[in-house]
Design a protein around this nucleic acid. Sequence first.
DNA 1: CGTGCCGTTGACAGGCGTCAAGTACAGTGG
DNA 2: CCACTGTACTTGACGCCTGTCAACGGCACG
Lengths: 213, 213
Amino acid sequence: MDAYVANALQAGTIMPAARTNQEDVESRPLSNFADGERIYMDGERAGQIYRVEYGAVRICRILANGRRQILAFHFGGNWFGLQAEDLRRSSAEAVGATGIKCVNIQETPGMWQGLLPVILDSFSSAQEHQLVIGRHSAIERVAAFLLEMSDRSGALCKYDLFMPRVDIADYLGLTIETVSRSLTKLKSRGVIKLNGTRGIEILNQEMLENLCM
Amino acid sequence: MDAYVANALQAGTIMPAARTNQEDVESRPLSNFADGERIYMDGERAGQIYRVEYGAVRICRILANGRRQILAFHFGGNWFGLQAEDLRRSSAEAVGATGIKCVNIQETPGMWQGLLPVILDSFSSAQEHQLVIGRHSAIERVAAFLLEMSDRSGALCKYDLFMPRVDIADYLGLTIETVSRSLTKLKSRGVIKLNGTRGIEILNQEMLENLCM
DNA sequence: CGTGCCGTTGACAGGCGTCAAGTACAGTGG
DNA sequence: CCACTGTACTTGACGCCTGTCAACGGCACG
C-alpha cells in the first residue's frame, strides 16, 4: 500500500469502510479461462471490475489495420477493468490458464474509494510504459521488460515468462524478430540466460538496469 | 462527465458531497508561471494537486542520458499532479504563461472521491497515448497529435499550438526534424495548413482520421 | 542591422521492420 | 518408441524509416 494514500487513510479522507467491502471479493465465484479466452471485449458495456487469482491477463487494443498494442499485463492479485467510460475501449484476454474473480461495481457501494489506489497504480504503470516505448531502443525495451517481469515475480532473478514472444513484442511496440534478436544479444553478452523458450535467468542485474537508465 | 461515473453518482456510490468540496478551489489564490517554469519537480515530495486556469502544462521525465519524454499536456480546466507515490516521479512545467490553482490534498477531506473521474481520465489518456507511440509511424503520430489538440481546443479545425516543436517531438517519441518533416508532408498533401509556426488549420479532417486508424 | 532562437530542409547512416528460411519442441497417431 | 505435424522461436538478408549531423531561413528582440 502506498504511503501517500495510506496517509490519506489515516487522515480520514478515505473511509476505512471502503476497504471492508473489498473483502467480499474473496467469497465470489472463481471463473476459469483458457489460454487466449476473452474476459471482455472492445465495444462491450463496462460494468464490472476484475481481479486475477492465478495466471495472467493482457489488455489489448487492435487497430483497423491489424496492428495490436498490449497496454498492460496483470498477474495474480492485480485488479483490472476499471474505467470511466461506458464502453470498453480495449479487450482483456487470458494468457495461459487463468482464474478471475469479478465484481459488479454498481452493486457494491463503497468500492470506489477502495479502488483509488488501484487506478493510481495502473496510471503509474502506464506512464512508466510510455517512457519505455517512447524513448528506448529495442534492446533497452527488452531489458526493461525483463526487469519488470522479474519485479512482478517477486524480484526473483530466475523466473518464467507467462507470455509468448508476440505478446512481448506487442507490449513493447516491436516485432517478434526484434524481441528475439534482443534476447539473443543479451544472452551473448552474458547478461541473461534463457532456459527453454519461457525461462529467464538474470545473470547481471546491474547491466540490465544500466540499459534502462 | 462520463456516464459510467455519473451512474455511480446516481446510485449513490459516490457521495455528492465530494463535489461541493471541489468548488472550494475557486476561492484559492492563482499562481502565475512564466514559460518553462517548474510547478513541481522529479524527486520532490508530493502533497498537492493542481488545476490549470489558463495556459498549459507539460508533465515530463528526463532520463540519465538526457532523453526526455513528455507524458501529458494539461490545458485550462485540467487537473494534474495526483499520484499514489510519496515522491514525484516526473516534473510539471509551464508551457507559455500559465496560471495554476493548487489544493493540499491531505487538508481537503472528500476531495479524493471527486478526483476519481480525474484520475480515470488521465489513465485513459495515457493508454491512448501508449497506442500512438507504440504502434504508429511518425506521420500517424503527428496526425493523431493534431487531432488531439483540435479536440482539446473545442473541436476547432483552426487553432494554435501552445508548445514548440521540441515538446511535440518529446511527446510523440520523435525528433523535431521528423515532426517538422511530417507536418510538411501533411501540408503538401493538402491535409493541413500551417499559419506561422504555431497555427494549425485542418483542411481535411477525414484524411487525418484515416491516418490514425 | 546584428544576434540568437526556432523551425525547415538536405545528406547520410543505422536500427528496426519485412520477408523468408531454418530450428526446436510439444502433441498426435502409428 | 518413433515419425509426422503444427506452432513458436531463431536467424539471415535486405530495404525503408527515422535519427543524426549540418546548413539554411525566418522572426523576435535588442
